[in-house]
Design a protein around this nucleic acid. Structure first.
Lengths: 197, 197
DNA sequence: AGCATTAATTATCTTTTGTTAATTTTTCGG
DNA sequence: CCGAAAAATTAACAAAAGATAATTAATGCT
């Protein structure tokens, strides 16, 4: 069931846990594979799953009535993915979660992990660590919206996550930054023309 | 030390906890009072405290070189306040936390609560609940920046937090929404002139 | 209550963004 | 490797936002 490579992988992800703790989680987890383009969570779904991305990239987006979409979130290998509507707000997902690349997830049912997390002190502490790191990321994003201009936000994204920028079409990055694809194109032009002189 | 009113207050805040759990926390907490205008956390501080606001309102802001300030966060009674730089990023606070009204906090040293939280399953679960709710709020704010225009964000703020809007000067609300005070004034004018016909 | 300070609005001008549509470039499947 | 589809860029114009400064309104203090 678990080979040496898997074990060392889990030990690295769940730092501070012992094999027994890890086994408790792994035995209720399963692998889920998505091809590029596959929808992971549909709009309206009440999918109570928590996924850990081992490989690939997932985009959460809102579909407007006119067919346009707005990208809310990108997550990639090493990050968690879940419908925050379903898990936090306890309501059907307003957003669509779609794999932009071939993706491999370790998935657990949220109702099954939660009791585990709350009854084992080491797992609780690990859970709090993950929640804090997600909170930090989300607050950093709010901070960027308040403190930076769209151009500065784009430059920050390029400098902090260059490999994500290369893996994702600009039109998705644009709405993630709160601007339109046309506007991002102009920003890119402005930046490159300034760099010349 | 603890009167009946205090006890029922804590029981309501920390749902699911028993008196012993609450007492463990309360005995390491203390009351801190701030007058309107007082700075709670200075820029550069490594203040590792977690505050629960019992009364009043605190604003976190960034001070620009030209003297302008940008409001990142408002928290009020019933909410937690902490320097996220000091607690999450483990670095000196880039922001200033200031009471906008006379404020009363229950404050604990973060280094002291953390072991408590991680060793008592009920407290761990409560901690996770608080972290999830803070994450939900932060993600909702990111969502507003991606999905809504400045005008729509302002209308959302007014409809969801009318009493906060009334307690805080518009210039602070403006930067909280990612726009300038002048622009907010124009938005307010636009809204009121549309309402007439 | 009166005065000084601060906040909010208004005005003017510049810059940026949004919108729509056309055009060019890139990507990807057969 | 070719052609269709998607993405990115460009253009043109309208709308909104930023910057700065002046004016008006509101607030707070003694």
């Amino acid at each position: 069931m678990l080979d040496a490579e898997e074990i060392s992988f889990y030990l690295s992800v769940f730092k501070g846990l012992d094999l027994k703790d890890i086994y408790d989680i792994v035995k209720i987890a399963h692998v889920k594979k998505l091809a590029a383009g596959d929808v992971y969570i549909e709009q309206g779904a009440t999918h109570q799953k928590l996924g850990y991305i081992r490989k690939g990239l997932i985009r959460a987006y809102h579909l407007k009535e006119n067919g346009d979409d707005l990208t809310l979130l990108l997550q990639w290998e090493g990050k968690f993915i879940a419908s925050h509507d379903a898990i936090i707000h306890l309501r059907p997902s307003r957003f669509i979660y779609q794999a932009l690349e071939d993706t491999v997830l370790m998935e657990v049912d949220y109702g099954k992990v939660e009791p585990l997390l709350n009854n084992n002190p080491r797992l609780s502490s690990t859970q709090a660590t993950f929640l804090r790191s997600m909170l930090a990321e989300s607050m950093d994003r709010v901070e960027a919206f308040v403190l930076l201009s769209p151009e500065e936000r784009y430059l920050q994204l390029v400098s902090e996550k260059p490999n994500i920028v290369n893996r994702v079409p600009d039109k998705y990055l644009a709405t993630l930054l709160g601007i339109t694809p046309v506007s991002l194109s102009r920003i890119r032009k402005r930046i490159s023309s300034q760099g010349k002189h």
